[in-house]
């Protein structure tokens, strides 16, 4: 049985798709059979970030409508063994996803995969609700600013009341905080909330802190998930988060302006 993980936030442009691509790819790199499912119907861009946009033939909605089977729609990644992408449709509208249709596809994927990563659209409407409904676990992507934190709080409330686990009174969806686009300089200047501020407000376990990084922009232009750039700070921070997701305890990095952190690590200080 697969672990179904939704990557969600409420707010748009905070790094959900970047994180879905990075975490899905990282899990596969570490030997887990993983599929990343794009729930952002009409605004697909997971395939761009994964660099598979030219290989999309069938999509999620085709499979729901019975116009293609799952194997026809799944795109196998050429770089990483055991990594697949289920792209979204560019042409359909958001209501194309039905609960029964989504459930059937997730059930089928669950037979084959270790992890199903659901890249949620922004907002709190149909598409976002569908992406989180069947989740066992949630990665709540948050930027260190007030409006993003507030939207994440909202999504946490929805996870606790509108998910399948909530509706059926099962064990609640496991919540993880992923703080992205973190910029220690701006935190010090007081322009941004600190890790502690955000943890304090949202009160859920911290999965990772991804620094604001040029490497992310570069990676998305190349169509290469940023974890594949293992020299980069963002790539390393995502890898740390992926270890934590699998239950390992890893120290947090990139939280301070002082570069000592990295040297300490290298020289074992």
């Amino acid at each position: 049985m697969a672990r179904i993980i939704v990557v969600t936030s409420g707010k748009g442009g905070v790094g959900k798709t970047t994180s879905s691509a990075a975490i899905g790819t990282g899990l596969a790199l570490q030997g887990n059979k993983t599929v990343i499912v794009d729930f952002d119907i009409g605004l697909r861009n997971l395939d761009l970030i994964m660099g598979v946009e030219r290989r999309v033939v069938y999509d999620f909605v085709n499979v729901i409508n019975g116009e293609a089977n799952l194997n026809q729609a799944l795109i196998k990644d050429k770089r990483v063994e055991g990594l697949f992408i289920l792209p979204a449709s560019q042409t359909r509208d958001k209501d194309a996803l039905t609960r029964e249709g989504v459930e059937k596809i997730l059930d089928e994927l669950s037979q084959e995969f270790d992890y199903i990563i659901c890249d949620s659209p922004a907002g709190i409407e149909q598409g976002a609700l569908m992406a989180l409904y069947f989740a066992d676990e949630a990665i709540v992507v948050t930027n260190p600013e007030v409006s993003s934190v507030r939207d994440s709080d909202r999504i946490l409330g929805i996870l606790a009341s509108k998910s399948r686990r909530a509706e059926q009174g099962l064990e609640p969806v496991k919540e993880n905080l992923l703080l992205t686009r973190y910029c220690p300089e701006r935190v010090e200047r007081g322009d941004m909330l600190s890790v502690e501020d955000v943890k304090d407000i949202l009160a859920i376990p911290l999965l990772g802190v991804i620094p604001e990084s040029q490497a992310v922009l570069k990676a998305s232009n190349l169509g290469e998930p940023v974890v594949l750039d293992q020299e980069s700070d963002a790539g390393q921070a995502y890898l740390d988060a992926i270890f934590r997701l699998q239950g390992q305890s890893v120290d947090f990095r990139f939280l301070n302006t002082e570069k000592k952190g990295i040297f300490k690590r290298i020289f074992g200080g």
Partner: peptide, 27 residues
């Protein structure tokens, strides 16, 4: 025993309300 998140509403009719947790902005 929970946080009351943004967008959530809790009403204790005819009685007191005890929350072990926080009430978020918009809650």
């Amino acid at each position: 025993k929970q946080n009351v998140r943004s967008g959530q509403q809790v009403y204790a009719k005819d009685t007191d309300l005890v929350i072990i947790g926080s009430v978020g902005n918009g809650g």
